[in-house]
Simulated assay, not measured.
Amino acid sequence: MVRPGGRSARVQAAVHTAVRELTAELGRDALTVPLIAQRAGVTPSTVYRRWGDLQELLSDVAVERLRPETAPQDHGALADDLATWAEQFLDEMSSPAGRAYVRDALLGDPDGSNAGQCSAYAAEQIGVILTRATERGERTPDVESVMDQVVAPLMYRLLFRPQGLDTAYALRLVTEALGATGPGGAA
């Protein structure tokens, strides 16, 4: 059992910090487990025991970096909230750093848990937006529908067909997803 705030948490924080610092200083391609361990003040065996290999470590760091830092903005209407969120999501994920984090999160994810965590982050954010809209009396789609109609196409295009991926595309996806809520919806 891992104690929150115990040695395990300190090691994770030190190693994650070392990865971020070394990536900024030397570039991702120069990273090695011994280099990261030295910067973090741990032994390479500690890194290998906890993460298995460099790619799994980079994946873990990427998942942490992809975690949203704040709740989605509240603009007073579902269409505005979801459009703003989709624009920011696309901007973050399509940036060079975002693309690298997505790549790392997926490459070091043998059991799919990191991808699941990244998906959960998006679903949580969408859930907040939809809950606010419901509380305002707006008709809303469910979280899974928005994931399928907005997030999934954005991620597919980001990974496999990035040309032409822009804000207009993201906004079109949001409009189409909200149009499916029917009469009285936010569309």
Rank of each mutant, 00 (worst) to 15 (best):
G108S: 05
W51E: 03
D74T: 13
G182I: 04
G127A: 08
T181L: 03
L158K: 02
A177G: 04
A86K: 05
Q163W: 12
R49A: 13
L78F: 02
A97H: 07
A13P: 08
L178G: 00
A62E: 02
A13C: 08
V143M: 03
P183Y: 08
T46A: 15
A100W: 03
G164F: 10
W85Q: 00
V33D: 01
R28F: 09
L171G: 02
G52T: 06
G182Q: 04
M147A: 08
W85P: 01
M147Q: 13
A40L: 11
G185C: 05
H75K: 11
L130T: 00
A180T: 12
R39Q: 14
R139C: 07
P68A: 01
V174D: 00
A37F: 06
R132I: 05
Q38G: 08
R157Y: 08
L178D: 00
E64Q: 13
N114I: 00
A97C: 02
Y48C: 04
L165N: 03
P110Y: 07
S113W: 12
S113R: 15
Q149M: 13
A86W: 03
R157E: 08
R3W: 04
G137N: 12
Q73V: 15
E69C: 02
R67M: 12
R67D: 05
R7V: 14
Q38A: 14
R136F: 08
A71T: 11
R157S: 11
T17A: 15
Q12S: 12
A79C: 00
T70C: 07
A30L: 10
L57D: 03
A115I: 04
Q12T: 15
V11T: 12
D91N: 11
L26N: 10
A97F: 03
W85F: 15
G112K: 05
L58I: 09
T43D: 15
M147H: 07
L31E: 04
E21G: 03
